[in-house]
Nucleic acid binder design. Structure first.
Lengths: 124, 124
DNA sequence: TATTTATTGCGACTATATCGCAATAATACA
DNA sequence: TGTATTATTGCGATATAGTCGCAATAAATA
């Protein structure tokens, strides 16, 4: 793995993700920490995913959202929980449920993405 | 609901979806039935979704896939099953599993999208 | 301080999907 | 059967999300 450097941009992205607690899209992040190039933020987020600091969720709108790996054990990075996305405020949260997945014979598992959409409490 | 008309394009899309059995993206469909405009195919698919003939899956790549509602009861359209997408051939299939979803208090359910990615039997 | 190279900014580019509008064609009706 | 109605289509433009190459910048290391 490539050696990482300490940069302000990296810290800023990390901080806002921790602060919010929910999964954020690129533009949500950009709204909170202005002054960085779009590509830069995407690259930071992709690095975080590679390093296992953050996990990626694809919303029902096809957009990517990124969330801290709070529930992850140190070694074991499993993000097989279900997410909730509000159709009104676009917010994405991690739910507790982790469905059991049985693949047919001859299939191998690589990743899991699961989103329930609806209306969150705040938007009711 | 708007009154639907019988057109060759509609029949062609429906037929190829039935024939393949798996979920197909716009470009997969276009490859099979050439001669229709991109927008037309999208509109047909979106109409199918509205009418409950077809359900929409969003892959881990953010792309939309469409599949016949074979497992659906006549009245009850629930597509809460998990899908499998092959990272090699891009194929999307419906799995049996239907995870139980418990939303927090004050949240309402609207839709569900769940995809496991990996390698399918054919690509091993 | 000087060197190495990870990171950034910029602009161009790709891909997916939708939209408005005029033309076309399926349905209903006289 | 001929005509009117309007759902559907094709075209081009547009929107949005995300990536890429390259030169410039700035962390880390010696």
């Amino acid at each position: 793995m490539m050696k990482r450097r300490n940069t302000k941009s990296k810290d800023d992205v990390l901080e806002i993700l921790k602060l919010k607690g929910t999964a954020m899209s690129h533009d949500m992040i950009e709204n909170e920490i202005e002054g960085y190039n779009r590509a830069t933020i995407y690259r930071i987020l992709n690095r975080f995913c590679k390093d296992g600091i953050v996990h990626r969720i694809v919303g029902m709108n096809g957009k990517q959202y990124f969330a801290m790996c709070t529930t992850c054990k140190h070694e074991e990075h499993r993000h097989n929980h279900i997410h909730f996305q509000c159709n009104n405020c676009e917010k994405v949260e991690c739910l507790e449920e982790e469905p059991v997945i049985n693949l047919p014979k001859g299939y191998t598992f690589e990743n899991f993405n699961s989103v329930v959409s609806g209306i969150c409490q705040d938007c009711h």
